[in-house]
Design a protein around this nucleic acid. Structure first.
Length: 470
RNA sequence: GGCGACGUAGCCAAGUGGUAAGGCAAGGGACUGCAAAUCCCUGACUCACCGGUUCGAAUCCGGUCGUCGCCUCCA
């Protein structure tokens, strides 16, 4: 499939290096607060990519999702609240994983904490110091950008051009204003680790390098994150990784677009943000996923309640087809008939359109339109086919579920009814049918209304009354 | 100042050289005892604007206007 690669600035054909295993690293959150609705975008997008790899490409995916649990923001929060950094980090790390689960995100293969890999980071920094790519100054260690020829290759920034109009404030410690911190000396009271340069903590960019190497080894296929990380974070990762190893770091760099609110970028520093948990309090997870996937992942996405509402209506339409068919045919042993066979053979077209869309730089928007078309065609067949020719509808349902899998849709729709439940419903529906035949509509409606209160939905269709759980 | 993205119907949004997907909203019709769901019909002579290339452009080139992002922690 093709993926847009920030490194080459074009869509490149993607294949795992060894042909079967994809190593994918997604930059994770700094756990000093609950994640917001912007942080959710890469989580959903790259979960979708992973699912597509696994279900449609047959590739095994090693998915690394790091947790940054040591950082200035955590230290500041600790000073504000009096809580320890460890305790704050533990709280929001837990909240993060709860949220992933609520969103139906597959559990990443590895979820390493930065603080558990400080030794590895110190080793990396030491090797950079020894090779002249880094230097120590008063307990801080900086990466020497002038020592890395390719600096700027990811973000397209040439050092010479940058320096002219630079608005980076010059630090007296740095040889070049673009030199970045690898190791930061500890102030009194701050969390700290021993190192050859005294007590301190690692810089942010270093953790992703160490964790990538450790958990992916040579399977460094994809490194992903928000496009606000391109510079300086990912640029700096590449610099230190490639300066130290002499080998290419990652082959593919994938970046999702930012979330905006009212056309303005949403961010914590601007204050115009909402917590992801609040959205999940108002919308079901599939609606949330549908909303995020209804815009191409590289483009900016404007967040709005109206957008979520539209997504909810749209995803409900898909789900309704699925539940209606399953309700009608749950016990049926119908036949296909010639029209059914024709209909089933027409389904292949939807699948290939879907694959074509997803293969084209994960075009989930076009893929979703295929699901909508599939549902339209199925509803049409449902409306026009005779009672004997309905088994084909189950094929359409199976396809819809298959296509929904990478998007994370319809997982929760599999309601299992017990034999007793089934029997009771059949009884109630038969009773109500007799009432309706006697035109006792008041009683019949009472049954339907009361069942609705219990979460059971009745629909009177041309094929008889069907029921499903709401 | 440097790097980059975007401007498609009331709203959201694909399409990036071959004559405008899909969803939401809206109106009309069908079905129905009523509900619910569903089906049918109605939508951009047009893709910010101007000029160019081409048999042909929303799609390529040049320019104009407008919006936004990164360059400082940020997904």
């Amino acid at each position: 499939m093709k993926l847009y690669n920030t490194l080459t600035r074009q869509t490149d054909e993607f294949q795992p290096q060894d042909g079967s295993t994809v190593g994918m690293y997604v930059c994770g959150p700094t756990v000093y607060d609950h994640i917001h609705i912007g942080n959710v975008r890469p989580v959903i997008v790259f979960d979708t990519l992973r699912r597509y790899f696994e279900t449609f490409k047959g590739w095994n995916v090693v998915h690394v999702q790091n947790i940054t649990d040591i950082d200035d923001k955590l230290i500041n929060k600790s000073i504000e609240t009096g809580e320890t950094v460890e305790s704050i980090a533990a709280t929001y790390t837990g909240a993060f994983f709860e949220l992933l689960q609520a969103l139906g995100v597959l559990q990443p293969t590895h979820t390493p904490l930065a603080t558990e890999h400080v030794d590895g980071m110190i080793q990396l920094i030491e090797s950079l110091v020894q090779s002249g790519h880094a230097y120590e100054k008063d307990g801080d260690v900086y990466f020497r950008v002038d020592s890395f020829e390719d600096y700027g290759k990811l973000s397209g920034r040439r050092l010479e051009e940058q320096e002219a109009g630079a608005r980076i404030e010059a630090s007296s410690h740095k040889e070049n204003p673009f030199d970045f911190t690898l190791w930061k000396a500890a102030k009194p009271g701050e969390p700290k680790w021993d190192s050859p340069w005294g007590e301190g903590r690692p810089g942010w960019h270093t953790e992703c390098v160490v964790l990538s190497n450790q958990y992916l080894g040579e399977h460094r296929d994809i490194h992903a994150g928000g496009n606000d990380l391109v510079f300086p974070h990912h640029e700096n990762e590449i610099a230190q990784a490639e300066a130290s190893s002499g080998k290419p770091f990652f082959r593919f760099w994938l970046h999702n677009g930012m979330l905006s609110i009212g056309g303005q970028k949403m961010s914590k520093s601007l204050g115009n943000f909402d917590y992801a948990k609040n959205v999940l309090a108002n919308y079901d997870p599939e609606t949330v996923r549908y909303f995020y996937l209804s815009r191409h992942y590289r483009k900016p996405l404007d967040y709005s309640d109206e957008g979520l509402q539209a997504a909810q209506t749209a995803v409900t339409r898909l789900r309704t087809m699925l539940t209606d068919v399953e309700s009608e045919l749950r016990n049926a042993s119908g036949t296909y008939g010639d029209p059914g066979i024709d209909f089933v053979s027409s389904l292949a077209e939807f699948r290939s359109r879907y694959v074509e869309a997803m293969d084209d730089d994960l075009n989930t928007v076009a893929a979703i339109s295929v699901l909508q078309d599939l549902v339209s065609a199925t509803n049409q067949y449902k409306a026009e086919s005779t009672d004997e020719d309905r088994m084909a509808l189950l094929d359409a349902v199976a396809l819809l579920k298959e296509l929904g899998e990478p998007l994370g849709l319809f997982a929760a729709t599999a309601s299992r009814e017990s034999g007793l439940e089934d029997g009771l419903m059949t009884l109630l529906i038969e009773l109500r049918k007799q009432l309706r035949e006697k035109r006792e509509f008041k009683l019949a409606d009472q049954i339907r209304d009361h069942l609705a209160e219990l979460g059971v939905v009745l629909k009177d269709t041309a094929q008889g009354t069907i029921w499903s759980l709401s």
